[in-house]
Design a protein around this nucleic acid. Sequence first.
DNA 1: TGTCGTTATATTTGTTAGGGTATAACGCTT
DNA 2: AAGCGTTATACCCTAACAAATATAACGACA
Lengths: 109, 109
Amino acid sequence: MEIKSRLWVEEQGKPFIGYGRIKLLKTVARTRSISAAAKELNMSYKKAWNLLNQINKLAKEPVLIKNIGGKNGGGTEVTPYGKGLISKFEQLNTTCIHFLEKEFKKIGL
Amino acid sequence: MEIKSRLWVEEQGKPFIGYGRIKLLKTVARTRSISAAAKELNMSYKKAWNLLNQINKLAKEPVLIKNIGGKNGGGTEVTPYGKGLISKFEQLNTTCIHFLEKEFKKIGL
DNA sequence: TGTCGTTATATTTGTTAGGGTATAACGCTT
DNA sequence: AAGCGTTATACCCTAACAAATATAACGACA
């Protein structure tokens, strides 16, 4: 019997970032490539691109810098703002989990 | 820009209760009928029955008392244990939402 | 200038959760 | 005994979602 949670942030009623998108962003930041990240997460390139596109459309500041063509065919960088999103969301998520487990034990069930 | 959350409780890795199931349970408790609750929630009877069946299979104590046939064709009662589940889950949910909104403002984004 | 691996996008194919429908059992009520 | 509205369950089918495939543009580099 365990408590589970899922957090996400919405902008204009549309999902902006959540658990899955943050995991994807982190992998893109490390691999510097959307396609490599998608492969690593066993996700189709299209799905990864769609998710990142949603983030891009809703973000107030740029999250990704994409390069088409060039060395290694191009690649994608995550901006400092994007990396801030990652760390802030992960912090919020872990504090929430701790809070919930404490409360769950208190309430019982 | 707003924070959202979804909580649920798992038993043996399977979903036991969550937002949707609690809403269904509440409606069953009020209407004393699975079919009436399903109709009110714009959900097929089959789906409602499946959800309640999952709860039943995982619960340690009875959650529902179902009557087939009889006055008005029968009906379904939610046990005190089931009502306890409802109130405890809702309490956990609201405290979590308050906590998250406070933390969200603190962290910004 | 041709090759390469990437981003970007459309189109087609597959999968699966849920909807629709049908049917049976049940036990008060009349 | 018949009728009613409920729970319970099987079967088919479809409609939304994800996967697979195909193709184009791009720019460094050899």
